[in-house]
Amino acid sequence: MTSLPSAGSVGIWTRSVLRRQPLLPVLVTLLVILAAWYDGFATVANLRNIAVQASPLTIAAVGMTYVIMTSGIDLSVGSMLFLAAAVESSSALIDQPAIGVFLAIGATGLLMGLVNGLAVAMTGVPALIVTLATMQAFRGAGGHITGQQDISLPEGLRGIGTGSLLGVPTPILLAAVTALCGGLVFSRTRFGRYVQAVGSNHGAAVDAGLPVRTVLIGAYALAGVLAAVASLTQTARLGAVQPSIGQGFELTVITAVVLGGTSLFGGRGSIGGTVLGALVLTTVQTGLVFSGSSPYVFDIVRGGVLLVAVLAAGARWRVLARTVGLTSRRRPANAGRADTAGSA
C-alpha cells in the first residue's frame, strides 16, 4: 500500500490501484454477479452480514500478513483463538467487567505471540515447526483451562460480537480499525519497512544492522494480539466457548493472506490485499449458501481459489522479473531454495 499519486488523472490512479490490488475488481465482479443472480443478496442487511462474518478472519489475517511478510508462518492462530477464548471463560475472568476482561485477553494474546516470536527469533527453529508445536501446546492449555467443557458466556461479554455502535456492528468496526492501523503501520512506520526488509533478505537485513530479532518478535507478538481480538469477536458471536473453536482457522487465515497478494516467500505484501482476500473468501462462502450448495463445496472452492491466486502471483512475479531483468536474489544461496524466476 502506498499513497495516492498526486494530481494524476483518475484513469492513471485507477489503473495503478487495479495493478496493485487485482483482487478489487474480482470482489466487485463477484458481488455484482451474485446480486444479479440472487434476490436478497444486494441488501444492506446481507452485505452487513458478510462483513460481520469476515471480521474475525480479517483481524487475524492482518496479523498473519506481518508474520508471512517476515518470511515466516504462524500455524498456531487457530489454537490461539481457542486459548484466548478459554482464558476469557475461565472462572477468574468470567464475572469481571467487560473492559477488564478484554484487556486481559489482549495480554494473553501478547503472551502467546511472544512465545512464538521468541522461539522463532532466538532459537533458529523454522517457524513452521515452532508454530506447529505451539499449535498443540496452546490448544492443550486451553483444554486444561476449560476442562474440555462448553462454557457459556455471560451477556456482558457478548456485546463485542453482537452489539453495534452508531448502527455499525462492533465486529466490523474492530476489523476496520485493525485494517487501517495495520496498513498505516505497514506503510508509514519503520517497523513496517523493517518487516519487509527482513522477509525479503534476512542476511542482508542483519548485515545492514537492522534489529532483526526485535522485528521478528514484534511481528509474531502482533499476530498473537490480533488473534486474541479476533477470538473475542468470534466467541462473542458464538455465545459460548467450545473445544472445537478455531480448528482449521489457521488455514483459512493463510488462504486469505495469500489470496490478497502477500508472497509466502516474504518481503512482499499488502494489508489492503489481505482485507480484500478475507472479503472475497467470505463473499464466496455466502454466495455458495445462497446457491444452496453443500458446505463441503466451499472447501473445494477455497482450495481452488488459493491455487489460482498463487499461480497468478507466481506468474506475475515471473513476468515482472523477466521484464526488469532480475535474477533470483530473494535470499542468500541456501539449501534447496531455488526461486522460480531466472534460474531455470
Binding site: 440472487y38 436478497g40 468470534q234 458464538l238 472445537s244 462462502q285 455466502t286 449458501v289 445462497f290
Partner: peptide, 20 residues
C-alpha cells in the same frame, strides 16, 4: 447442515435468515 459445529450453525442460520 451443521456437522454439530456451532460456528457452522451460526453462519448457516444467519445466511438462511438473510436469504429467506
Amino acid at each position: 447442515p451443521t456437522d454439530w459445529k456451532p460456528d457452522q450453525a451460526l453462519d448457516g442460520t444467519s445466511n438462511a435468515l438473510q436469504k429467506d
